[in-house]
Simulated scan of single mutants.
Amino acid sequence: MAIIQIRGLRKSYRVYQKQEGVLASVRGLFHREFRDVEAVRGIDLEVEQGEFVAFLGPNGAGKTTTLKLLSGVISPTSGEAEVMGFVPWKRANEYRRRFALVMGQKNQLWWDLPAAESFRLHQQIYRLKPHRYDATLGELTELLDVRELLNQPVRELSLGERMKMELIAALLHEPEVLFLDEPTIGLDVVAQHNIQQFLKRYQEERRITILLTSHYMKDIAALCRRVVIIARGRLMYDGSLAGIVDRFSGHKVLTLQFANDQPLPDLSRFGEPLDAEPPKARVKVERERISDVLSNVLRDYTVADVSVEDPPLEQVIADMFATAGDSQELASASV
Score class of each variant (00 low, 15 high):
residue 307 S to M: 00
residue 155 R to L: 07
residue 23 L to K: 10
residue 12 S to M: 13
residue 7 R to Q: 12
residue 313 L to W: 02
residue 162 R to K: 11
residue 180 L to Q: 03
residue 149 L to V: 12
residue 66 T to G: 10
residue 41 R to F: 01
residue 91 R to L: 14
residue 75 S to W: 00
residue 55 F to P: 03
residue 237 Y to K: 08
residue 204 E to K: 08
residue 91 R to C: 11
residue 45 L to Q: 03
residue 232 R to Q: 13
residue 71 S to E: 14
residue 141 T to D: 03
residue 160 G to H: 02
residue 161 E to I: 03
residue 62 G to K: 01
residue 236 M to H: 14
residue 314 E to T: 04
residue 224 C to Q: 14
residue 20 E to V: 10
residue 183 P to S: 12
residue 166 E to M: 14
residue 178 L to Y: 06
residue 54 A to G: 14
residue 57 G to I: 00
residue 32 R to A: 08
residue 36 D to R: 13
residue 66 T to C: 07
residue 23 L to W: 08
residue 47 V to F: 08
residue 129 K to L: 11
residue 24 A to P: 02
residue 297 V to P: 12
residue 321 F to H: 04
residue 288 E to M: 03
residue 219 D to G: 13
residue 63 K to E: 11
residue 134 D to W: 13
residue 243 G to H: 02
residue 45 L to D: 01
residue 31 H to G: 11
residue 208 I to A: 05
residue 253 V to P: 01
residue 12 S to P: 12
residue 155 R to C: 08
residue 163 M to D: 15
residue 315 Q to G: 10
residue 30 F to D: 08
residue 268 S to W: 03
residue 171 L to K: 10
residue 38 E to D: 12
residue 332 S to K: 08
residue 4 I to D: 01
residue 13 Y to K: 06
residue 62 G to C: 02
residue 66 T to H: 09
residue 153 P to D: 10
residue 92 A to N: 13
residue 200 K to A: 14
residue 158 S to R: 09
residue 311 P to A: 09
residue 211 L to E: 00
residue 314 E to M: 02
residue 311 P to I: 06
